[in-house]
């Protein structure tokens, strides 16, 4: 158990997000190599765990890592961590691979099923913004301390998520997940008030 925890913390401290962004923005081969070394063995093991078929796992891994190289520009760090994005690429690749292998019709693809849903823009009228900000600030106070801190920094003070991670001294992924949990709780509170 201890070994597992150590393993996780070391993996989590690897700046996967930075590497993936460098691959996406400037096609950085060194960053890709680092990313490949850090994740491909784990993706491969994960695929094997789902289905003990080395040739399938090998092909899906190859296709996944190729997409990671080719499509890295689609990664949006504001929406989640690099590993979650890589996970979804691997899942989609595996899904299409398995259907192709069973000769199932291919006109539906994993990309249809898991297409991104853009969050709806809140149509808040500008004149109401101060009032809304005031009300939101009360609700934010009701969040658990760790979440409210992150939400306040990002949404009220406009700090970048990486900056928050550095100042608070936690990995970027932690900031993202606190933010996500916090926003969800806020939405629930808003629903309850209505």
């Amino acid at each position: 158990m201890k070994a597992t925890n150590l393993n996780m913390s070391s993996a989590k401290q690897e700046p996967l997000d930075d590497w993936l962004q460098a691959v996406g923005s400037i096609a950085c081969q060194q960053s890709y190599a680092k990313l490949f070394k850090a994740v491909s063995g784990r993706v491969y093991a994960f695929l094997l765990k789902q289905q003990n078929d080395p040739s399938m796992a090998g092909e899906v891994l190859q296709e996944t890592m190729l997409k990671v190289w080719q499509k890295a520009a689609l990664y949006d760090a504001s929406k989640g961590t690099a590993i979650t994005w890589i996970y979804s690429v691997a899942r989609n690749t595996r899904y299409d691979y398995l259907r192709r292998n069973k000769h199932q019709s291919q006109w539906f693809s994993a990309d249809d099923i898991w297409s991104q849903i853009e969050p709806e823009k809140d149509g808040i009228d500008e004149q109401f913004e101060p009032i809304v900000a005031e009300q939101m600030s009360h609700l934010i106070d009701k969040l658990p301390e760790l979440q409210s801190d992150v939400v306040r920094r990002v949404y009220l003070h406009g700090q970048a998520q990486q900056e928050v991670a550095d100042e608070v001294g936690v990995p970027l992924g932690t900031v993202k997940s606190r933010l996500r949990l916090g926003l969800r709780r806020l939405r629930e509170m808003l629903d309850e008030e209505m």
Binding site: T4, N7, M8, A11, K12, V39, S40, G41, R42, V43, Y44, A45, F46, L48, K49, G58, L61, G80, T81, I83, T84, I86, Y87, S88, A90, R91, S177
Partner: peptide
Amino acid sequence: EQQNAEQMLLQPETEM
């Protein structure tokens, strides 16, 4: 998805 991704990251690195 995040839990699965974390699971994936916890796998022992298996060399091919």
